Computed example of a mutant assay.
Amino acid sequence: MPEFSKTADQALALLLSIGEEGGATAAALADRLGMHRTVAHRLLATLEQRGFVGRRSDGYELGLVLRRLAARVEPELLQVARVVMDDLSATTGEATMLSVREGNDAVTAALVPGTRHLVRVALEPGFRHPLHAGAAGRAVLACLDDRIRRRVVDASPAPAALREQLKEIRRLGYASSHDELQEGLCGIAAPVVGEGGLVASLSLTVPLTRAADLQKWAGDVVRAAGRLRDELGAATRMTGGS
């Protein structure tokens, strides 16, 4: 078995904590991970020197090095997703969105507009909302690590109701929303849980006047999310093996 490095593991734990649970001071990160504060300070100083974290007034955040590395991965995600999204929009005639998690938010990464109706949904990429709100966000939230999910749920306006919603999402395989994020819109979203911890969601969003049509597309959305998951996995394995 390869030799295990405790120091490297602790540094990676700090990066994962900042990325998954949000930035914080060195003391707060140490407490969060059960790590000695002196060790956390030393490791964060090293990570900052290498550009993996950056320091701001209220603590540490992920640095530019990680953001550059992530930017190399994102085009592959969008390239694979675009084909699946085009097919889903062609099948349903409605707007298809890919949303990804950034901290405690869901962010629209890509949109394929609908084609069959005069009244269309056009949410620009970059649209951001809390994970606990909207179908796209809750689909992601339902599939996060238990510890992260509990933290987000406990900080939401209605934790008990949200827990029940997430149970239902995991049972059905998709989330729904009605006149929630933007007045006059409703949506249905399925999670995409990929290799390496990627959690995103694929969703249809329609005007309320066509809300009755959403339910009949639920199976198509779930199947499209599964296809995206499989194709991302295949692309990752191909890249790793090249």
Rank of each mutant, 00 (worst) to 15 (best):
S176K: 12
S177D: 14
V152L: 06
G187Q: 05
R101I: 09
L14I: 13
G19D: 02
A122I: 01
G34Q: 06
V83C: 00
R68P: 00
L47W: 02
R210G: 04
Q165L: 13
G51M: 08
K167G: 10
V192W: 01
R67Y: 15
M35D: 03
L69Q: 10
R68V: 08
M85T: 10
P75D: 00
G219L: 02
V119C: 02
E183V: 05
A13D: 14
A90C: 07
D213V: 13
H41M: 00
D105K: 11
A190R: 04
K216Y: 11
L78K: 07
Y174F: 14
D179L: 03
S201H: 04
R50Y: 11
V121W: 03
G19A: 14
I18W: 01
T91K: 15
K167Y: 08
L77G: 00
A211D: 09
A40R: 08
P130K: 14
W217C: 11
E102Q: 14
M85C: 12
Q165H: 12
L16S: 06
E3F: 07
A24G: 13
G134L: 06
Y60C: 01
R223V: 12
Q49C: 00
G23M: 03
T91C: 05
G23R: 05
V192R: 00
S57F: 08
A200V: 13
R170Y: 03
L208A: 05
E61R: 11
V153T: 03
E3S: 11
D145Y: 14
G19H: 05
F127L: 08
L208V: 09
L131A: 09
W217F: 15
P2Q: 03
V80Q: 12
L29S: 09
V39H: 11
L15S: 01
C143F: 13
S156V: 10
A224D: 01
E20S: 11
Q215A: 13
G134C: 10
D31V: 07
R37K: 15
G59V: 11
L12M: 14
R116W: 11
G34D: 01
P159E: 00
M238W: 13
A70L: 02
A175E: 01
L14N: 10
R138M: 06
V65Q: 05
V153F: 15
G103T: 08
T38N: 12
A28K: 14
R147C: 01
R120E: 07
E180P: 06
A106C: 05
G34M: 03
G54S: 15
R138L: 04
L202V: 13
A30V: 09
G93Y: 10
A8W: 11
V100N: 01
R210A: 08
G19Q: 07
L185K: 11
G219S: 09
T115H: 14
A28N: 13
D220M: 04
Q215N: 09
L43N: 04
P207Q: 05
L43K: 03
Q10G: 05
S17L: 02
F52C: 01
L16N: 08
L181H: 12
G184E: 04
A13M: 07
